[in-house]
Design a protein around this nucleic acid. Sequence first.
DNA 1: GCCGTTTTCGGCCCGACTGTTTTCAGTCG
Length: 582
Amino acid sequence: MTRETLAETLEDIALLLELKGENPFKIRAYRMGAETVMQFPGDIVTRAREDDLKGIKGIGDALQQKLHELATTGKLEFYEKLRAEFPTGLFELFRIQGLGPKKIKALYDSLGVDSLARLKDLCHSGEVAALAGFGKKTAEKILEAIAFREFNAERFRLGDVVAPVEEILTSLKEHPDCLRAEVAGSYRRAKETVHDVDFLVATGNAVEIIEYFVSHSRVTSVIAKGPTKASVYLADGLQCDLRAVSNAEFACALAYFTGSKEHNVAMRGLALSRGYTLNEYRLAPREGSDSPEAPVFESEAQLHRFLGLDYIAPELRENTGEVEAAAEGALPRLIELENLRGTFHNHTVASDGRNTLGEMAAAAMEHGLQYLGIADHSKSSFQANGLDEKRLREQIAEIRELNRGYQSEGTKFRLFAGSEVDILKDGSLDFDDELLGELDYVVASVHNAMTMPEAEMTARLIKAVTHPKVTMLGHLTGRLLLERDPYAVDLPAVIEACAESGTVIELNCNPWRLDMDWRWWKYAVERGVKCAINPDAHRTTQLDYLWFGVRLARKGWLTRADVINTLDLAAMEEYLNLEPIR
DNA sequence: GCCGTTTTCGGCCCGACTGTTTTCAGTCG
């Protein structure tokens, strides 16, 4: 039983209850429950198995009982019975834009639609259009949406959308009628993947801005267009929405469209308790209340302050305790890109990188870094031209030579000699202790045998992170976003082992990885684990990945003190027990 | 189904757009 299974079951129940036309608040309770399970900072599966869920906000008596049953027996009678009422094919219909529970139920009840294939047939045959409440246009839209789903991904990696998003944002800002423009939504919250991108513009001429937006060169089709709102697709299938508001509404609108949905619900609840109602345009006295009028907010910070909160950074807005912490003045001071003084885990031409030691060092200096850790692959990663003992010793010597050069030039910069050592199948390392002892630091990572059972993988990782020569654990779960699932591993157990042995966990900044996942950092830090933000750069330009790493670190509530590579060179030398070379 | 500075019942966030309808239901975010 995994966290994901628990959450997915609750999500499925919510969908099935929607089909049955259940009380929408009950449905929301299941959704909230699923979200709570996914976000819970700790071992929720064990807690469920041991019936130890009391006091977790969003999980009441009924959900406690259901999660306990699911975790102990692997089944849930309530869910099985619900499932038996509808064919499983209905689930895929929910993925079609424009289809919700009511329409799906109508299609199923009157036409027996129980799969995408059947729905497609009946749209073509005209039977869908003839259905009450449907029409020709609806049938066409459904066919379009099915075709879209067949040809496009539903989610995009954050790193893959940055270029088009920033380009569109820049062009919006250039429009003479644009007073202010921002990207909101999950992009602004730094989710590792996004479904769509939300643009927000303050303007006195919404119609003009909307026209300008839908005719942007990157736009390939227009999904919807009204006087204040438009939705479009870009060439790669990315959906972009634009909302136009007045300048006075901009702050509330930005807060609203940044979300998350769950965060917004919490904020509105808070506003209500303060005697106000909050929507995407303004904060207004609640009907029947004697609260004074709220001012026009220039910024989100002013809105937050008015509600008695410290400013909540967008990355934190996932309803995982940020509203409560902001009310208590207990939000962390989040790390910023400028705090980084160096970074580890970078490759060179010696293994599978594209640039030399000298080029990587020069690029690091251009980024204002005082040190750069080199960690080329070890010999077992032959697919990546991993270094054997002889080549690694040569590289160590080359690094020492370069460092002497920086020293004689009076440049305050140092390369650290390291290795990304393969964690072998049995948890042992790819080099012997003697060679590891010659290195300045060691990153240990898994690159093969990723499909072993959870218990074995967990033991393998724990053996590696408790090895005295291992400084940090690289890309903990091996996931490739939208392509390869994380390997099965007991994360809390590995985090605990790292805490006990003082092993650092990497936040790998490669936009395909962003691993360890942001959802675990708060827990890891509470256990006393430190983070290293590492770009895993295979070429000089990939040092820019640090930007993603910092965004995701912020999302994990990390402060400067939680991240070791905020230490300056002298402090880092001390941390690694190295003699200064100056 | 959850929750409590409206506290064990009665609330629970709110508005834009679309299509099929003549005043609104459904969907989406």
